[in-house]
Design a binder for these strands. Structure first.
Lengths: 194, 194
DNA sequence: AGCATAAATGAATAGGTATTCATTTGATAT
DNA sequence: ATATCAAATGAATACCTATTCATTTATGCT
């Protein structure tokens, strides 16, 4: 971060404030104070309050995609890849708590513009899962009678719900590794006893 | 519904308006218009805007729990119970679209009061799943090395994410039955090929 | 140093909407 | 019919906060 990169400073403040209060309850003045900047200054870097949220999505999910793709490319077995995805996703919740809260909440918000947005950038992130599944099916590692699209949803949903638990109740009994392990185990092998 | 049960009329209107616009973007006057009632009348039945949301939760999730318990009690095999849960949950999204949207969105909203609330009423709903799992484990139908709490989260999360897809994109390729079938299949048997 | 340009400030504005309450309307009983 | 009480109304209030913009402060150049 440069000597005084206001753009990033404001964005970091916004992550914190949106994460704590939610988009609608967050005041511009809260963000300004957190960023140690005047209210008006924010409008030199962003068009309006909503623009801060969109930019935040754009940039932070972008980083996330890059990171997770890099981690996955280290593995050759699609079963391991699923575990790695789970691990990274859950780590985010621990390491960037506020960002995770923002994504959790605002991803569900109503409003046409954000719905549209989800269809592009956020979808890219989740589609990493279906790519893994498809490749696994081609390699005969995964059952071919299940649609990758449904597995993708189910798997992401499982992780996301686990995140919600942690955000709500920060004292988690299980480690990130245990949880990632348990969830990928359930998906790979099922819960029925042999 | 009685000749003029304003309480329920307002609640139904709120479900519709909150579902369409989200809690924060919904105006009291929108709800009033939808309920065919004066703005002030709403305050004879509810303390404030937020109270409408809470009441809505209380009453609608209550109904949901009753319904789903009744359906599950018809079955004796825990594997079938899981399928039935999935089926009912997904049906909700089709049959009561607006309510599903409200639950989806507002469940993730920030704010202490709603977080506290979730810990009680909403938890009861999700705990139906862990009850099924625990019983299944006692009957040696399900693996005993997996924690019911984690399975519960994963299963609910999977269903919830599927709901989100449908809410966002109402033209679903799969029927409710197919989807409930696919998701319970994944959880019961896993995705790894034999 | 002196000038020009850019960046930052924060008090004032402007618009929105939850909530109130004086008044009207409707219902019930005598 | 009229008095009494409850229910409903909706315009006015009161508050809140995103955004603007005239002014101030910092930066860089000769």
């Amino acid at each position: 971060m440069k000597k005084s990169d206001k753009h990033q400073k404001i964005l970091n403040a916004a992550i914190k404030v949106f994460g704590q209060k939610g988009f609608f309850n967050a005041r511009i003045s809260d963000i300004a104070k957190e960023a140690d900047v005047a209210d008006g200054t924010i409008y030199l870097y962003f068009n309006n309050k909503y623009d801060i949220l969109l930019t935040l999505f754009e940039e932070e999910i972008g980083k996330l995609i890059t990171e997770i793709r890099a981690a996955i490319s280290q593995k050759s077995d699609q079963r391991e890849m699923l575990y790695i995805f789970a691990l990274h996703h859950l780590r985010l919740v621990i390491e960037k708590k506020e960002l995770a809260e923002v994504l959790q909440m605002e991803l569900r918000q109503s409003g046409e513009s954000i719905k549209e947005y989800r269809r592009t950038k956020f979808a890219d992130y989740v589609n990493i899962i279906s790519e893994i599944i498809r490749t696994g099916q081609e390699n005969n590692i995964f059952r071919r009678d299940l649609k990758p699209g449904i597995i993708k949803r189910a798997f992401f949903g499982a992780l996301d719900e686990m995140s919600r638990l942690w955000i709500l109740n920060p004292s988690h009994k299980y480690t990130v590794e245990e949880s990632a392990e348990a969830i990928s185990d359930i998906f790979l092998n099922g819960i029925v006893a042999d």
